[in-house]
């Protein structure tokens, strides 16, 4: 057979290949990896890549949902559908359980729980003796994430030390840890929000319906549109309005804002974020607004 000219590849192919390479390296080097699956678009892409990395074999590790208890029902339905379709093993690290056991203070049924995720995550990692946890974090999301290695070493307390990161040269990802320590692995480090959407479009990656424009009751709180539902009730003075909205990220329902949008399909979403003036987290995440270094502080405590 003669050698045919290699086909052209674009930058999405390069990002995809790199992510698959990272996933295989971590699974080969670590004893008990797990993939953190929130049901958000980044973890949806990550799961899609992980399945590709080991096809036609089944995914050789479980997925874990860090469940704040304040979920969008559409996201839980999506999570369970993915788990059933792909034949995955699902573990749930529950914030509610951590509250019930007195591991963390109870912020009240409607209080914000994103910070409490750290304790549930670390408990889940310890309970299953996971030594590596894949996350869908991207470096374009936040200035602290922009500093983090692809393989982020965490000590016995799950802490990130940004001043003492392991050198990470070339594509020599080094996953050795001692007992009790763990790694966070971020195969999507070099992807941008736009890359994620273009890849979802190319690969037909299924997503929860709340990413697409739909009408729902919302209230304006701290400059964000919050969906009125089981965990968000209007306070005195807050007016419930009905708007066409979609979500740009998926997190705890009490602190994840919607954006006003008529984008009903992926092409419309790509057009919309190509011209937006507001970052993904700036538009939708109350949990990053506490301080200048909110993300860095949470990562130091063990957050993903």
């Amino acid at each position: 057979m003669t050698t045919s000219a290699p086909s052209l590849v674009d930058h999405l192919d390069i990002l995809e290949a790199h992510a698959i390479f990272i996933i295989r390296e971590v699974v080969a080097e670590c004893e008990r990896p797990v993939l953190l699956f929130s049901g958000g678009k980044d973890s949806a892409v990550l799961l899609h890549l992980a399945v590709k990395a080991f096809a036609p074999q089944k995914l050789p590790f479980p997925v874990m949902h860090v469940d704040t208890g304040h979920n969008f029902p559409e996201v839980i339905a999506y999570r369970d559908e993915r788990v059933a379709t792909l034949g995955l093993r699902l573990e749930v690290a529950s914030v509610q359980e951590a509250i019930d056991k007195g591991r963390v203070p109870d912020p009240g049924p409607l209080g914000m729980r994103n910070r409490l995720q750290t304790v549930a995550l670390l408990d889940g990692i310890a309970r299953h003796k996971f030594d590596a946890a894949f996350g869908g974090a991207r470096r374009d999301e936040d200035k602290a994430r922009a500093k983090e290695r692809v393989l982020s070493f965490r000590d016995k307390f799950g802490q990130w030390d940004p001043k003492a990161q392991r050198p990470e040269l070339w594509q020599l990802y080094q996953g050795r840890v001692n007992a009790g320590e763990n790694l966070r692995a971020f195969p999507l480090s070099d992807w941008t929000e736009l890359d994620i959407w273009n890849y979802i479009k190319r690969e037909n990656v299924p997503l929860p319906t709340i990413y697409f424009a739909h009408e729902r009751p919302v209230i304006k709180r701290d400059g964000m549109w919050l969906a009125v539902g089981e965990f968000v009730h209007p306070e005195p003075g807050e007016v419930v309005e009905r708007h066409l909205v979609r979500f740009r990220t998926v997190g705890d329902a009490t602190c994840t804002g919607a954006v006003r949008s008529a984008a009903e399909n992926i092409d419309a979403i790509i057009n919309e974020i190509s011209v937006t003036n507001v970052s993904e987290r700036g538009a939708t995440r109350a949990d990053d607004r506490f301080s200048e270094t909110a993300m860095e502080d949470r990562k130091r405590e063990g957050y993903f």
Binding site: T3, S4, P6, S7, V9, A17, H18, I20, F21, K52
Partner: peptide, 13 residues
């Protein structure tokens, strides 16, 4: 990653 191919360039998994 997208199925079978006749050749693969550097950088592809």
């Amino acid at each position: 990653p997208r199925g079978s191919m006749t050749s693969a360039v550097p950088g592809l998994s």
